[in-house]
Each structure stands twice: as structure tokens, then as C-alpha cells.
């Protein structure tokens, strides 16, 4: 039996409509606190070495949220599922997890401002991660309606294309710190490249003049 994408997507969209976008912030903040609390009390995976595990937990959830943010548009296009109203909250939450990841790295792990700078300059995988973080700062700062109005939709949209290189660099950062051949960071990078790449492909198609 053939079911149109609208029949599946519509009831889900109906349910989603009842949740305000702010739900994402609440869940994100609760999750961040939960992980910190477990690290503090050295529970579960935090039993022996909580610093590195917390650093990785925040980094990975940031990457997951960036991927989630990038899937909103293709999901709507291909399945009719509409998560558009959550996208800003997903993106801003991703930024806060990157910030938390950086703070754990700087304060709990490296423990010295001078050495944080040294790491950023000397270690390419840190440089790349830092570049991703820096790109996300203006995006987080302009993720509000006032900025959108002030900047105008066109230039706001242009600025927010920084999401793409930020996500790619974030995934590269993860792959670069792995030792040996590891499948998980590779999957993240492939997914991010596919999601970003798909945009350029569809963009090119749109821009191509129609020829015989």
C-alpha cells in the first residue's frame, strides 16, 4: 500500500505543534546538568576519569545537535516532517554544548590559560575545533528575531551559512583526535559532509539555467 509522506508526517507535525521550541532548551540544560552531576559524583562512565569523559560527552552531544540542525531542512523536503520551529533552539543548544566542551577543556583539563592558547596554536585538531567554536559565536548571538530584522533576511541567511563549515570542522576535530582507525568519528564526518554537500548540489541545480 502506498502511503503519502503527508499522511505520516501530518499527525507527527500535529503532535510537535503542541511542544514549544523552548522544550529543546530545557531538555538540553537538564542533560548538561545531569552529565555534570554524574561526573562530579563519578557515576557510571565517570567512575575513574571524569574529566576526559565529560569533555567528550559535551563535545559529542554538540556534534549530534549540529547534525540534527542540518537535517531539519532535508527532513521537511523529503518527508514533510516539519521541525523548523525547533531549529533555532537546536542550533543555540549546540553552541552551548560547544561552550561547555571548551570550558571543560580549558578549566578542568588543561588548567592554564597560557597552555590553552598554546594548544590552540600548536595542535591542528584543537585549532580546527576552536575555529568551529568561533564560527558559532556570531550565529548564537544573532539567533533572535531582533537580529534577523536588523540584519535583513538575506544577510542573516548568508551569515548563518557559517553553520556548514562549523559542522564540518567540528566533525573533523573529532576524527583528528582519534587514535587508530575508528568508525564513529568517520561516520559523523560522512553524515555532515553529505548533509552539507546535498545543499550545494541542490543549490547548483536551482542556479543552472534551463537548457534544451
Amino acid at each position: 500500500m502506498w502511503i503519502s509522506k503527508v499522511t505520516i508526517a501530518q499527525p507527527i507535525n500535529g503532535v510537535l505543534r503542541r511542544f514549544p521550541a523552548g522544550t529543546i532548551y530545557i531538555v538540553s540544560a537538564l542533560y548538561a546538568c545531569w552529565e555534570f552531576w554524574r561526573a562530579l559524583n563519578q557515576l557510571g562512565p565517570y567512575l575513574v576519569e571524569p574529566i576526559n569523559v565529560l569533555e567528550r560527552a559535551y563535545g559529542e552531544i554538540a556534534l549530534i545537535l549540529m547534525v540534527a540542525g542540518l537535517t531539519v531542512t532535508p527532513l521537511r523536503k523529503w518527508t514533510g516532517l516539519n521541525l523548523l520551529k525547533f531549529r533555532r533552539a537546536i542550533g543555540v543548544s549546540a553552541f552551548f554544548f560547544v561552550l561547555a566542551h571548551f570550558l571543560v577543556f580549558a578549566i578542568l583539563d588543561v588548567q592554564s590559560l597560557g597552555r590553552v592558547w598554546e594548544e590552540i596554536v600548536k595542535r591542528p585538531y584543537v585549532t580546527v575545533g576552536m575555529a568551529s567554536f568561533v564560527m558559532l559565536i556570531p550565529l548564537a548571538m544573532t539567533s533572535n528575531n531582533l537580529s534577523l530584522r536588523k540584519m535583513g533576511a538575506a544577510s542573516w541567511r548568508k551569515l548563518h551559512k557559517l553553520t556548514y563549515p562549523a559542522a564540518v570542522l567540528g566533525a573533523l576535530h573529532y576524527l583528528w583526535l582519534a587514535k587508530g582507525f575508528q568508525i564513529e568519528p568517520l561516520i559523523y564526518l560522512i553524515v555532515v559532509l553529505a548533509l552539507v554537500g546535498a545543499r550545494y548540489v541542490s543549490l547548483e541545480r536551482k542556479q543552472q539555467p534551463i537548457s534544451g
Partner: peptide, 8 residues
């Protein structure tokens, strides 16, 4: 970092 020292 010596293992076993906790979060700080």
C-alpha cells in the same frame, strides 16, 4: 593527569 582524582 593522575587517574582517580575526580573532576577537579
Amino acid at each position: 593527569r593522575r587517574i582517580g582524582g575526580g573532576l577537579f
